[in-house]
Design a protein around this nucleic acid. Structure first.
Lengths: 239, 239
DNA sequence: CCTGAATGTATTGTCAACAATTTATCAGGG
DNA sequence: CCCTGATAAATTGTTGACAATACATTCAGG
């Protein structure tokens, strides 16, 4: 059902040039064809995509708003390099938003909804079981989107989507790898809590789940931000 | 202290053309010079502001992302008219995000922070007391921003800011008026809960406070969306 | 009189060129 | 040899014009 929208028409509306460029750059970032910090020059991109600078510019603006690229006035755009602190804040925000989402889902989910979620998680497991990590990750991520959809709040859905989209970039910037898989066990437990309309438990599980995700990235947060002496190996603070 | 940044330099950096246009349109919407639904034609705006269409276009894109204008492909932009449902979702999202903010603030706020908040609310009261409703509303809104700042999460701050910015438009669309004032009593209670590091109480107070705000707008949510028969007075569902 | 197609107008999407700003290069002085 | 300042190249910001699409008007047919 989820893929119905994309598979419905073989010949979709031809998607504006700006959309194509946006998608291409975004995907290139995720595939890490474009490493964090890479400069995105408008003319180069325009030539590559065979469009004018105006559409590249527009696409970059949108990517900037999504925090996938950083834009400095008069100084161009680079692929974003989320700092450790920023990454922690993204996960903190995800906790807040997904707790709210899962709470509402637990309150309002029907039996049909629960069944759908169970099926979803099953296909996740199947993907991982057959070694399709890539597909599994995608399904795991979409599980969170699905939950948001179920909560029926487009505002929160949009925020979640933005945060979920930023997550792989964080993984790339700090591990140089694709994001760690979601851990199906957490999802299963979540679904059951939702099915049982156990709001409190669902929230607690979600909080833990996101903590797991964050921990899997090894974001050691250096509360003292590299004491400068440390960085240059001059007068060490501990010597 | 808050106004220091804006008053620091009389001659700020001259702000890009796009920024000026963005600010002007946004302000015009808030002052209801531009009613919800008003079409925003690029050429007209370009002439008015004495700039090219490209910068208007860029400003409109940003306004679109802020949900202050609605953009339809090939069909231009109009001042957004948030539906009742959408408005409810905005408040629901505010509840989720501001609960998280106030929880963290309650956990981490220092005595200095508490003092600052008390002072802030006092200046709110003073503004209302001397009949300066406009200034009072602004201070009340900024109180929420202040809280977000205090929580120290830029991601959540940004979301809050977006939602807070959408609120006056909601008020305009459904009451044709400026937003109702915030109610200083709620703020006072909040500050005390934060000062006492009473996380639970602070969250509950914030939830209530936002419910008050929403109620003040009289958003009667018609769960059945005007059954079409109703609209045209044909075969009424209840006849 | 109403319906619907065809034409014309208005509006947005795209482009290539110009202006302003930043970054890189290099000569001269300390 | 390094630092400072001027010059040149590269890059972004902005503009006006052209192309494609949507909207309004008119007019023929029922």
């Amino acid at each position: 059902m989820a893929s119905a929208r994309s598979a419905a028409r073989r010949t979709e509306v031809p998607a504006s040039a700006e959309q194509r460029v946006f998608d291409a750059i975004r995907d290139a970032i995720f595939e890490h064809q474009l490493a964090p910090g890479t400069k995105l020059k408008e003319v180069s991109l325009a030539e590559v995509f065979g469009v004018s600078r105006a559409v590249v510019r527009s696409a970059l603006a949108r990517l900037g708003h999504a925090h996938l690229v950083e834009q400095r006035p008069n100084r161009g755009a680079v692929v974003a390099t989320p700092s450790i602190e920023e990454s922690r804040q993204v996960f903190e925000a995800r906790t807040a938003i997904e707790e709210a989402i899962v709470a509402k889902a637990a309150r309002t989910a029907s039996a049909r909804d629960a069944a759908m979620l169970r099926e979803w998680v099953a296909s996740e497991e199947a993907a991982y079981a057959r070694g399709d990590e890539r597909g599994g990750v995608r399904l795991s991520v979409d599980f969170h989107r699905r939950l948001a959809e179920l909560a029926g709040n487009r505002v929160l859905s949009r925020y979640l989507d933005e945060l979920v989209t930023r997550t792989p970039l964080i993984a790339l910037a700090h591990r140089g790898q694709a994001p760690a898989p979601c851990g199906c066990d957490d999802h299963i437990a979540l679904v059951e809590a939702i099915a049982a309309h156990d709001e409190r438990r669902a929230m607690a599980l979600m909080r833990e789940h996101i903590a797991h995700l964050e921990r899997a990235l090894n974001l050691r947060h250096p509360d003292k931000p590299k004491s400068l002496a440390e960085v240059f190996g001059l007068a060490p603070a501990g010597a």
